[in-house]
Design a protein around this nucleic acid. Sequence first.
RNA 1: GCCGGAGUGGCGGAAUUGGCAGACGCAAGGGACUUAAAAUCCCUCGGGGCUUGCUCCGUACGAGUUCGAGUCUCGUCUCCGGCACCA
Length: 870
Amino acid sequence: MQEKYSPQEIELKWQKYWYERKLHITPPTPPLNKGGISKGMSLNKGGQGGVEKFYCLEMFPYPSGKIHMGHVRNYAIGDVIARYKKMNGFNVLHPMGWDAFGLPAENAAIKHGVHPAKWTYENIDYMKKQLNRMGLSYDWDKEVTTCSPEYYKWNQWFFLKLYEKGLAYKKASFVNWCLSCATVLANEQVIDSKCWRCDSAVIQKELEQWFLKITHYIEELLQGCDELKGWPERVVAMQKNWIGKSEGVEVDFLVEGINEKLRIYTTRPDTILGVTYMCLAPGHPLTEKLIENKVKLESVKEKYSKMEDKEGLFAGHYVINPLTGEKIPIYVANFVLMEYGTGAIMSVPAHDQRDFEFAKKYGLPIKEVIVPEGGAEEQKNRRTEEAFEDEGVLVNSGQFSGMKSEDAKKAISKFIEEKGLGKITVNYKLRDWGISRQRYWGTPIPIIYCDTCGIVPVSEKDLPVILPEDVKFTGKGVSPLLESEAFLKVNCPKCGGNARRETDTMDTFVDSSWYFVAYCLKGGLDFKFQISNLQSPIDYWMPVDQYIGGIEHAVLHLLYSRFFTRAMRDMGILNVSEPFTNLLTQGMVCKETWKCPEHDWLFPDEVKDGKCVHCGKEVEKGRVEKMSKSKKNVVDPNALIEKYGADTMRLFSLFASPPERDLEWSDKGVEGAYRFLNKIWGIVYKYRAEAQKSRSAEVTSGLPGFRASALIRKTHQTIKRVTDDIEKDYHFNTAIAALMELVNDISSFVPETDEDRTVAEIAIKNTLLMLAPFAPHITEELWEVIGCKNSIFEQPWPAWDEGLAKEEEIELVVQENGKLRTKIIIPAGLSDVEAKQKALEDPKIKQILNGKQIKKVIVVKGKLVNIVTG
RNA sequence: GCCGGAGUGGCGGAAUUGGCAGACGCAAGGGACUUAAAAUCCCUCGGGGCUUGCUCCGUACGAGUUCGAGUCUCGUCUCCGGCACCA
């Protein structure tokens, strides 16, 4: 053993060892009865008939070129969990793969002329090496790469299955079109009417698009949210929010003079008596019919859904309020959305702020029909300043006057339904999922257009439809696939005549909506074979027990995966509804930033004594921001590994903060983690000779009567703490802190007898075992040094002995009226009466209590005595 | 605006069911070793007061409940994240 810890050497050594011993390869799936054994086996660790399974999954990366710190953190967390579960006897599936389709590859092709496939596969090779250099325990036999034909074949297969069921359909619709990316964006990909990727403005364009009918499962997806007990609350809230269910009523208003009905949707039927005008979306079918002045209409259209101001135009027609018979003017307004509800609203300016503002602008009447319950005083000024949007009591509402909003909603809805004026309706914000992309580097949609037969799906036996190679990447607005003759021209599967292929490819979120199921199958994917298969490994492994990834996927990826899981369930491929039992959304990796007034963001080494090295100007210390190239605050994992090794990098990224919270990177903190590993190295170096001699010593059980039992006690307390911290909510930072305490104790322990040396050895072995999931290489090395055979990861996780962990003496806090007065040492396990006795006998307490009246004494067992005085 | 989450030393962060506020780490200061430095080891490290042992104050702010509040309740402020003209 070398005296000095050299991470490079030992890390490569053990990575090679793990690879050669196939240590990370998942054991074969035990034989199953469909749905039966996995349940029956639970909690049966290592007994007859197999063990409990644990599926540990981290979000797979896009192969952009290099691993960054966000990946490091994500995968370090996952690796600790996987290794910990293995040591606890679970049958663990811990796979990794590549989310390999997507725009950057195509952009690289346009810019540098390198084919997307070449670019992607080279990146994958490099990043895979990086992941292995981190010492992550992936079973690469399960690897998936979404851009490979054997993977995307199943995208196409799923598409066909959905098409058969009517869950994939084509429709012409206005879609979001990004001029800069020259592609269609899903509603979810438009943020503040800008492209989610390039931030440029999005325009509306009419195109034929393929949609997946996620709304088929919408109610189930919403209800299912309440079952997601293992998910962070905020993610569940975001999912619900995105689905956006609202309950209301649709009502028909007759348009006066022409034979038309105007249907609106409202969630506030209690205010229907307060309607003073109607508003249509500019794109509403009636709009064109009613408006004569097309020029003015254009100007309203231009301002459609622009937040700045409300713009409207009188349509020259009136409707009749079916409840009052009142004549009400119709307007076209830019703020009314065609995509939601019916594209038309009833306007109640007294009780809706938007309607109020619009009414003020166009001088429309405001009719109050709701007053706050109880207080009538503050009403007056309200009428002139803002709408009263709360619920209250109805006034000026005929037969409904005097009712509470809540009751009136029901009564009026019922009235409307009974009179045939409309119906109670549920609305959702979530739309069907538009998956068509005018891009090359994605899954071809397996559809053929025939002049005689129309839309014809590719037959299953002809899958996969493979991306052609003879494609030019110009970056122009049309799909590159349109230029490939060989791809485009095809014979119709039905009539054999001339036909052409669909040239759009699928949204890459399709790829990631089922990859977690693909991992369950080793090699050659075949879902057809999995349908109602009684021995399916999918049934064994699904659902994912722990999913770990970034919060940025809180809505889209997770929602689509939940949708796909249900669709697969209904195809008979699996028998769960929710894919991810527990979800951990790790925080971002951040670092301080520097900004020069002239040179903008600076690298840390461009700052000397608070001044910019280029211009000498005073540098402003920027905020702590998420690591990004543009802010020049990134830390390169390669450089860290080179300097400190993978174990240190992993350890620090786990120690600096709990996983769900943001992590502030600190170069000094990394050195602290490195120091800690060096300290353990030094300890083992010191004890190595003795340890090798006495390999008979029990690892976890204590030997009573030791003088050094304090260290044994600390060891057992630490096993308990570390286990609890990991089990509770993966709070690795406190688990590592506990290990640091134990190491500090070992390091200051001076053994005098042989027994002492055995005690030290027990403490050291347990420390190594507990540290192993966090810092796998150094612990393997030291495990070997002290003479243990086999991998440390073939050892069981240590167990603590409650008796040995128990303190013999405790420090009793003595308070007077809740204020700390003194602390006394008493034997553990005293009764409340005895503890009280000891406290009152203490000389200092006696002195303080002198002459005071004791009202009562509160005893908290093993902790504290509080004396309440008068 | 609505929905989440957070606010604790110089810093990152700890504190079962309400029970010693500040674990662990970083930074800082002092000391040992050294020709010197690095590394390592030891000590100090929330603030105030003084008689250096004690004492008072202290978990964003203001109330409250309680023998006792970082933790529970109500109100206020600030920050972060998500959604947002969704009728």
